[in-house]
Simulated assay, not measured.
Amino acid sequence: MNEEFTNRMLVVVEVTTARPDRPAYHAKVQVLNSRVVADAETAGWAVIRIAAADVTPAELLRRTADADALVIVGGEDITPRFYGGSAGYEGETAHFATADEGQIALVQRALALGTPLLGICRGLQIINVALGGTLVQHIDDGIHKNIDVPIDQILVAHGVSLAADSTLASSLGRVDISVQSAHHQIVDRLGANLVAAAHAPDGLIEALEHESAPITGVQWHPEAPDSPADQLALLLAGLAAQHSARALAGSLAA
Rank of each mutant, 00 (worst) to 15 (best):
F82C: 02
H95M: 06
F96Q: 00
Y83E: 01
H95Y: 13
R109T: 12
A99I: 02
G85V: 13
A65G: 01
I72L: 15
A67H: 04
A105D: 08
A99S: 13
F96W: 12
L70D: 05
H95W: 10
V107A: 03
E90V: 06
A110T: 12
P80K: 08
D100L: 06
D100V: 11
T93Q: 11
E92C: 03
G88S: 08
T64Q: 02
H95Q: 09
G75A: 05
R109H: 08
G102I: 10
Q108S: 04
I72W: 05
A99H: 06
Q103T: 10
E76R: 00
A105M: 09
A94G: 01
Y89M: 00
D77K: 10
V107I: 13
Q103M: 14
A65M: 07
A65Y: 05
E92V: 04
E101P: 05
V71Y: 10
F82L: 13
G88L: 06
A94D: 14
E101R: 11
G102A: 07
S86H: 07
G84D: 13
H95P: 00
G75C: 04
A94V: 09
A110Q: 09
T79E: 14
G84V: 14
V107E: 08
A99V: 03
V73S: 10
A67E: 03
V107Y: 03
I78L: 15
D100Y: 07
S86E: 13
I78P: 00
A87C: 05
I104T: 09
H95S: 06
A99K: 08
P80C: 12
G84Y: 15
A97M: 04
I78F: 07
Y83A: 01
A97L: 02
T79R: 00
S86D: 10
R81D: 09
R109A: 03
A99C: 02
E92T: 05
V71R: 12
E76Y: 02
A105H: 06
E90W: 01
D77A: 10
E76H: 07
T98Q: 14
A110R: 12
T98D: 13
V71A: 11
Y89D: 00
T64M: 01
E101D: 15
G84C: 13
H95C: 02
Q103R: 13
V107N: 03
G84Q: 14
I78W: 04
G74K: 06
E92L: 05
F96N: 01
H95N: 03
A65H: 09
D77I: 08
D68G: 09
R109M: 07
A105I: 11
L70A: 02
A69W: 11
L106D: 00
T93W: 04
